[in-house]
Each structure stands twice: as structure tokens, then as C-alpha cells.
């Protein structure tokens, strides 16, 4: 079994009012931190702000360049590049078809909720509606896992020379670092690169700092959400399993403008759908720290969505058996 990280710290958005140094200082880190900014895609190496921010503690950074390295791998190994593109197309289809089913299940739940019937029946049907949605989420995760397994069996990414060379360099940098900072950005792209280079097993014994998409990617299940997208009311959807380093929670960054917390039905649906995991909304300046698989401390306004449709400041008590993630196990 891979060694667990020394600590996992989830942070709110760092773009305008960064709090990373406070978290780094609390853990007494003085050495180098490896940075993962693959979620920024082509802008991956524009990490001057991050570097300067940590330099205030005399902590140095080294960017793992996962996005750029992946491009180099693709250039060096065209067969793998083609296979990877095909896999991405397959994932898009999976997500699309899952979304179609999901939208119908959510519509059905809405219709049933509007019906007149004895309260006991309505309550029972409401549970059935939620269960139907949970089943879809579960089916989607299972399919993603099967597709991933088939891809890995067929193409053996970590054994391919072009990729193995980079992986070895990455492992060396992480080994020489006290911590790893995982920034936000495009969560699917980030997760893809973390997965591609098999990063999770390298994180044992390290302090992990992750925010926004980074925090989502290292949780056990990545849930995409936006209550007010331009094309109409948005339905939260599961993307895939994450690295599983922050068990028992669904991480919801930027709740300030992504969540309609005044809509009790939406809050309730979200909380019930992902239970027993706790939906943890992480606004700017918020922070939550895991140790030994449970939340050890929280500060700065982390709050959780409750099954009664309300939300409240969270307290450090989450200790839920982790789901079966694709990398953490």
C-alpha cells in the first residue's frame, strides 16, 4: 500500500488573495515545493506569482511541467498520442451520454416533486429519485474506471519509454521536495495529467496543498457544478474519480458565484446525492486540513451543504470510508 501524504491541505481560490503561505508556514515547511499547474494548460509555466508568493517564506518552487511534458510525450510517441486522443473522444461521449440520462432523471425528480400525493409516498419517491441519480453517477464512474483499465492494459502508459523518462524526472523532483502545490484551472486537463504520469503514488510523506480544480482533483470524486451557466439551469455532474487523497468530501470551489445557496431544493439535492460524502464549499481564504484520512482543522469559512437544504459553517469531524478511487487504492 502506498505511503500516505504527510498532510493534505485544501484551500479556497488563490488568485486574488492567496493564503498558501499561511498553510505552508503552519506545517513548518522550509524546503522546496514542487508545483503542479497543469490545469492552466498552455499557460502552465506562467507561475511567477506562485513563486513570488512562496518566496516570502524563502520557500523555493519547481514546476513539474506536467502539461508540457505530456505534449513532449505525445510528440515522441505518435501511436500513444493517437490512442490518447481516441480515449479523450471516448470520455467526451461517455460524459455526454451520462449527461443526457442525468438531465432526464433530474427532470423526472422535478415532475414527481410537483405531484400531489400522500406525504409518505412523496417522501419515498423523493428517495427513489435521488437513488436513481446516484445510480447514474455510480454507473458513470464505473464506466470511466473500466475504460481507464482497458486503456492502461492495452497501451501500458507508464512503461512507454517516452513517458517513463519524464516520470522518473518527476519522481526525482517530488522526492527532493517537502511538499507539492496543486493549482486550479481546467480540472479535466489537470486530472488527466496527474493520471497520465501516475503522480499519486509519488506523494507519500509529502505535504499536499491544493486549491480549486487542484482540490477537486485530489478528492475522491470530481463533481462539476455551476448553478447559473449561460445555457440555463445547470446540473452538477460527476466527471471521474479523483486521486482520493481527501476522502469523505465533495469539494466545491468558488461557491461565491457558482452555487445558488438560497435555493433549498438544489442544496438539498446536492447534499443527498453525494451522501455520505459531505459537500464542502470552499470560498476564498478558506482552508481545510486532512491528516490520517480525516479533517483535522478548518478555517476561513468552509461550509457544508446539508440534507435539509440549508448550509452552515463546517466543523472538523469528517471521517468517512473512502470510495474506491482509481489511483489512491
Amino acid at each position: 500500500m502506498p505511503k500516505a501524504p504527510r498532510a493534505v491541505v485544501l484551500l479556497g481560490a488563490q488568485r486574488f488573495d492567496p493564503t498558501l503561505v499561511e498553510a505552508v508556514k503552519d506545517l513548518g515547511i522550509k524546503g522546496r515545493i514542487a508545483a503542479i499547474t497543469a490545469g492552466w494548460q498552455e499557460r502552465e509555466e506562467e507561475d511567477d506569482d506562485l513563486e513570488e508568493h512562496l518566496a516570502t517564506l524563502s520557500v523555493t518552487t519547481e514546476n513539474l511541467r506536467l502539461h508540457a511534458r505530456a505534449e513532449e510525450v505525445f510528440r515522441a510517441d505518435p501511436e500513444f498520442h493517437k490512442a490518447h486522443r481516441e480515449r479523450q473522444a471516448l470520455l467526451r461521449h461517455r460524459q455526454d451520454f451520462y449527461r443526457i440520462r442525468l438531465e432526464h432523471a433530474l427532470d423526472a425528480a422535478q415532475v414527481i416533486r410537483q405531484r400531489q400525493a400522500p406525504e409518505a409516498i412523496l417522501e419515498d419517491e423523493a428517495h427513489a429519485s435521488i437513488q436513481a441519480i446516484r445510480d447514474l453517477d455510480h454507473m458513470h464512474l464505473s464506466r470511466c474506471a473500466i475504460d481507464r483499465g482497458e486503456f492502461e492494459d492495452r497501451y501500458r502508459p507508464l512503461k512507454r519509454p517516452a513517458l517513463a523518462k519524464h516520470r522518473s524526472e518527476i519522481a526525482e523532483i517530488i522526492a527532493g521536495s517537502e511538499g507539492v502545490a496543486i493549482a486550479g484551472g481546467h480540472v479535466a486537463s489537470l486530472l488527466n495529467r496527474l493520471d497520465l504520469f501516475g503522480i499519486a503514488p509519488m506523494l507519500g510523506g509529502k505535504a499536499i496543498f491544493a486549491w480549486c480544480a487542484g482540490a477537486m482533483a485530489i478528492s475522491e470524486r470530481v463533481v462539476l457544478f455551476h448553478d447559473s451557466p449561460p445555457q440555463g439551469v445547470g446540473a452538477a455532474e460527476v466527471l471521474d474519480a479523483g486521486l482520493g487523497l481527501a476522502p469523505g468530501v465533495v469539494v466545491l470551489p468558488q461557491p461565491e458565484f457558482r452555487l445558488r445557496l438560497d435555493d433549498k431544493e438544489r442544496v438539498q439535492l446536492m447534499a443527498r446525492r453525494f451522501a455520505p460524502a459531505v459537500c464542502l464549499a470552499m470560498p476564498e481564504r478558506s482552508r481545510a486540513r486532512w491528516k490520517s484520512g480525516r479533517v483535522e482543522s478548518q478555517q476561513g469559512g468552509v461550509f457544508e451543504l446539508r440534507e435539509d437544504g440549508t448550509h452552515a459553517l463546517s466543523v472538523a469531524r469528517h471521517s468517512v470510508p473512502p470510495m474506491k478511487g482509481h489511483v489512491a487504492s
Partner: peptide, 18 residues
């Protein structure tokens, strides 16, 4: 156009958290 284009081609809004 906003509703239309984002309906036929939803952007990465649901994917980007930074």
C-alpha cells in the same frame, strides 16, 4: 447568441476552477 452558442457548444466554464 449567448444562449444559443453556449447551448450548441458549451464552454469550459463547468471545467475551470481557478
Amino acid at each position: 447568441l449567448r444562449e444559443g452558442l453556449s447551448w450548441v457548444f458549451p464552454g469550459p466554464l463547468m471545467f475551470v476552477y481557478e
